[in-house]
Structure formats: C-alpha cells, structure tokens
Design a protein around this nucleic acid. Structure first.
Lengths: 180, 180
DNA sequence: CTTGTTTGTGAGTGCACACTTACAAACATG
DNA sequence: CATGTTTGTAAGTGTGCACTCACAAACAAG
C-alpha cells in the first residue's frame, strides 16, 4: 500500500478539477484524469462510482475551495461594513481564480446541468457560497445579487478571452474587473 | 429536389440551436440534429463541413436572433434616455429567451471555447451585441457592463434551476429578473 | 429521350472511450 | 509463515458516434 484510498481520492479530485476544466465532462476521458493523477484508469473507477460520481465529487471539491477562499478573504476585510467585506471577498475570489481552473470548472459544470446529479451539486455549491456571503457580509439581497452577477461576468470574460481583445466593447466589459 | 440546399441549411441551423442547447456540443450526436430536422445524418454532413462547422454556424444563427430581438426591443423603448433604451432591450431579451433554447446554447458555446473556432464565434456574437447596445442606447461603459453582468446572471439562474428553489439565497439571486 | 446536376439516403468503417475482470503486489495480523 | 485485506494494474469488451461512399430519385436543358 503506497497510499490510503482516502488520500488518493483527495489528490485525484484536485487533478480532476483541473482536467475537467479544460474540455468539460463529456470531452474529457477518465484516462486523462487518471494519467494526470499518475494512476491507472481502472483504479479511478474503483475509487469513484463511475465518471459521473467523479465529476460530482470534483464539483464538491471545487466549491469547497471557493468557499474557503471567500471565507479567508472576509477575515482580511478593512472594516465591518457590507461594502468593505464584499470587496474583500471579491478580491479573494479574483486572486483564487487567477489560475482559471476553478472558474472554468464552474462553467463546465453549469453546461451539464441537464444531468440531475450535477445540477444538484451546482445548486449545493452556490447555496453554500451565497448563504455565507449574505450572512457574513450582512449584505442586502440586491448586493448579493450584484456580487454574483459580476462574478458570472468574469466567466464570460475568461471563456471568451476578452482580456486579449483590444476593441472598445471588450474593454467596456472588462473594465474594473480585478486581474483576470 | 424537394427543397434547395440553402433553405435546408436555415431550418437545420434553427433545429441545431435547440438540440445542442440541451446537452451541448460533445454530448449531442449529429444524428440527433438530423432526426430533429427530419433529414438523414449523411445529408447534414454534406450541408455543413463536419460537426464543428455545424455548431459554429448554429452559433451565428443564435446570435443573429439575439441581436434582432434586442434591436426590435430598442425600437419599442418608452424614451430616448440610455436607461429607458437599456430597459427595453432587457425586456426584449427576457422575452426572447423564455423558451430557454437561446440561453442554453450560449452556455454550451461558452463551455467549448477551448475549440478556437467556437471561441471566435462567441467573440463575434458578443461583439455584435455589445457594440449595438452601446451605440444604440448611448450607454456608458459601466452601463453596458452591468447589462451583460445581469445577463450572465440569468445563465446561472436558468442552468441551476434557481426559479424553482424557494430558499432565501435563491430568491435573492432571482429577485427582479424578468419572467425566466 | 438523353445527359447532367442537385437533393437525398442506407449501409458501412474505424476509432475512442466507459466500464469490467482477472490477477498481482504490498501490507497487516495471528 | 499463513491468511486476509487493501492498493493497484493490464488487458480486455461492448457500444456509440463522426465521417464516408456508393447509389438513387427528382429536376433541368437540349
């Protein structure tokens, strides 16, 4: 026994988030996740109940990391007002998704919500983040809504590669968005 | 000859938008599009250069319809101020995506932007819509950005099915969004 | 009617990939 | 050392799907 199954699961999940992020659920063979994790495809199928189980578990890991980052960001807020806390949370989130994997995985997960298990995982993830943002920042409904609206705008900016587009319309959409 | 090739292409593209919208590019076999359009798979491959060509052309058709709807909505604006025109555009867009196909297709397209041809089609679509919104409404950069941010929020609401979630966090995210 | 062009299809072909099974090696426990 | 359990894999199996090709029917023009 080189490693315990539980430890393997953790490393496989983190690599799964990165690998699924590139091409999505259907276009990513389990072989690709296994190779990136350095183990055989057969063992991935023993550690998780099929490809769908792996993806759902990866979604859980993805939102775990997002929630943790936002939580840590709130601790570093400059003051106690909702605006200051939301700003600190936004900064922490922007810093977290600099490597793009967590952002792209969310996009991929939203694209396969026709699979009920994935839809439920996505809802659970946003439920966790949204309830925390609202309670921790003491923000109004409208502030929470705005927080997520501009978060989703980041998804468009990154997937379409708008940071690289010098035209005015792209500059307007990316203005003020923190280092994407 | 029952129909001209060009007329076939138009009908195939509209059905392709609906069919791709459900399961996305990789999970949708060309057979499904052909069956929905009432022709054989082989003929779809003659009308378009492969599955990728079909999807890219469908993306063009999707953004054509969105641009046309927003353009028509602007004509029905109550006044000439940017706020009134943006509001009319938003209403027209909300009305258009009531059947969900155009919205879900955009989500699917954003998820496969790792394919360069699709990324370019997405950029072209948003370029067209964004430049029109800005010039027609005479809106500021910040107003255009806000318009698209809340548009992207609709994508999350619909894919995650948040209209059906009665919990407070979901109500906060969906508040004020027009009849999704 | 003959010849040519366009619209349309049925029947393949080859490959990628989800998932299984049989088997082996490492470790634990008595 | 013997027996059992857990970690790990190599080598299949079956199926679904992108794409092709040979062929047919409708129409046009002479």
């Amino acid at each position: 026994m080189r490693s315990t199954a539980e430890a393997r699961r953790v490393t496989v999940l983190n690599t799964a988030v990165s690998v699924f992020a590139r091409a999505g659920f259907h276009a990513t063979p389990v072989t690709a996740v296994a190779a990136a994790a350095g183990i055989s495809e057969a063992y991935v199928f023993r550690l998780f109940s099929g490809k769908l189980g792996l993806f759902v578990a990866a979604a859980g890991a993805c939102f775990d990391r997002i929630a943790a980052a936002i939580e840590a960001g709130a601790e570093r807020a400059g003051g106690d007002s909702p605006e200051e806390i939301l700003d600190a949370m936004g900064g922490a989130y922007a810093e977290l998704i600099a490597d793009r994997d967590l952002l792209l995985f969310q996009v991929q997960a939203q694209a396969v919500t026709d699979i009920p298990e994935i839809a439920e995982a996505v809802r659970a993830g946003y439920r966790r983040v949204a309830t925390f943002v609202q309670s921790r920042a003491g923000a109004s409904d409208a502030q929470v809504q705005q927080f997520f609206a501009y978060g989703q705008l980041c998804h468009l900016i990154v997937t379409a590669g708008l940071e690289q587009v010098p035209e005015p319309w792209a500059r307007a959409l990316t203005a003020g968005i923190r280092h994407p």
